[in-house]
Amino acid sequence: MLSRPLLALSGASFAIGTTEFVIMGLLPEVAESFAVSVPQAGLLVSGYALGVAVGAPIVAIATARLPRKTALLALMAIFLVGNLGCALAPSYGLLMLARVVTAFAHGAFFGIGAVVASNLVPRHQRTQAVALMFTGLTLANVLGVPFGTALGQAMGWRSTFWAVFGIGLAAAAAIAASVPSGLPGSFGGLAGEFRSLRRWEVLRPMLVSVLASVSLFCVFTYITPLLRSRSGLTPGEVTGALLIFGIGLTLGNLAGGRLADRRMSATIVGGFAGLVAVLVLFAFTSRAAWPAVMTLPLWGALVFALVSPLQIWVVEAASDAPNLASTLNQGAFNLGNAAGAALGGAALSLGFGYGTLPWIGAAVAAVALALTLSGRVGVASPDGEGAFDAAPAARG
């Protein structure tokens, strides 16, 4: 299944994922550089996520009728301009602006890229193809975030954004060289496509996607200070812990794609149930270094086992508007990122300790599980006849 176009898409997702997540490992350095608090620096995560959420529908409309390859290259150009701005930003406000500019490329790239990836393989391998594209995002946590964090700590946080700019430039060149040019944009009316997205069977998986991200980011946004202050890890040990977390993300992402192509509902329901349990466990294991580090890969695996199944669930539920639905679901994920970062920051500002954050994440994941079980998890069957895989609660 692995091909040059999928590798190019994965390389671009690596660059995008690194610039999104690496800021979390650099929060103390950025806060010190601009003389702001760590929770205020954490708003750079929220700002990026809100940029994705707001930018996704805008960019979806702007690129709707462009050939898919042209749209992907235009989005990579926006990404490069944004990262250049991050590397050069002289103030906290301008860094926030540059992050938002970068974020405008994010939702549409993953949305369009997921549809392109799913069209490059047989129908029964669609979720695995999307998972392979998202492997770049998980490898950003295995390689990009730990090494970007180490680079930023050693040579200043701006050096990390210069490195991401170079990776993004190489990824754009690979897309130009390998992604097929014959994939058209939307030929339908945008008003009709937006109307199709108002159906509850489309909105429900998008809401589940929001809650999945809230559960992750209310904890992960503050993972560096949590591991330093609560678990007792040194800055260098935090880098190693993030590497281990990223390995879990990568393995979970690939496993989730493979499992979901066989049983979508079981993968999503089981993923959320496991996520609740692991976050409750992390509330206790985070009190000490080694138990905390050992919990991280399991948490990461469960989180990213859900990403490609949720994406395909939305695309299949909105089969008459797949490009738009896929892009908007990326906005939904990142709306959850912003809400999660803000929720975690609010808890810290109110005086709750870092140990409270995993409990909040578990509670949100439990709500997502309940919403998933409230109806059918629908995907088209491999034979293309549109059969649905019913969630356990809906079988009767």
Rank of each mutant, 00 (worst) to 15 (best):
T267G: 00
S213I: 10
G344V: 09
P225C: 02
N323P: 02
V214W: 04
T356K: 05
S319A: 15
A390C: 13
L97R: 00
L373S: 08
P5I: 06
F194H: 01
G111K: 04
G344K: 11
V22D: 01
G82V: 03
L88A: 14
A103Q: 03
F147L: 15
G236E: 09
L88M: 15
N329D: 06
F352T: 12
G168A: 07
R395A: 13
R287F: 02
A87R: 12
R287P: 00
S381I: 15
A390G: 10
A56Y: 07
G375C: 14
A108T: 09
L371T: 10
A105Y: 03
P57D: 06
V276P: 04
L26M: 11
R376V: 12
L169G: 08
P146F: 06
T149W: 13
M96W: 13
E29H: 11
G240V: 04
A53K: 02
S374N: 14
S181E: 08
T234E: 07
R228W: 12
Y222C: 01
A117W: 12
G11K: 06
M206H: 03
T250H: 10
G331F: 00
Q330L: 12
T70A: 12
L7K: 05
G248T: 09
A288K: 13
P184H: 11
L120S: 10
A77W: 04
G355C: 09
R262D: 11
E201S: 15
G156R: 09
A241V: 07
G246Q: 02
T18W: 08
G148F: 01
A191H: 15
Y222L: 00
M133N: 06
V116T: 11
W359G: 03
P122K: 08
V36A: 03
E32L: 14
A60E: 11
V22W: 03
A131L: 08
S91K: 13
A41C: 10
L324W: 11
V314R: 02
V54F: 06
F333C: 05
N323K: 03
A53E: 05
M264Y: 07
G51W: 02
L169A: 13
A277S: 12
E193D: 14
V314E: 01
L310P: 02
P180E: 09
G107D: 02
G93Q: 10
V54R: 05
N329Q: 02
L80A: 06
L211Q: 03
Q330T: 07
V214T: 08
I247G: 10
I268L: 15
L197G: 04
V142D: 01
A394P: 03
A212G: 09
N83H: 00
P382C: 09
W313H: 11
L216A: 07
L6D: 10
A260T: 11
N253Y: 12
R99N: 05
A87N: 08
A129Q: 10
V116H: 02
L302D: 05
C86Y: 01
L50D: 00
M206E: 01
L139A: 11
G270L: 10
P146C: 02
S3H: 03
L249E: 05
R158I: 09
T102G: 06
A380R: 13
S215P: 13
V238A: 06
A177Q: 07
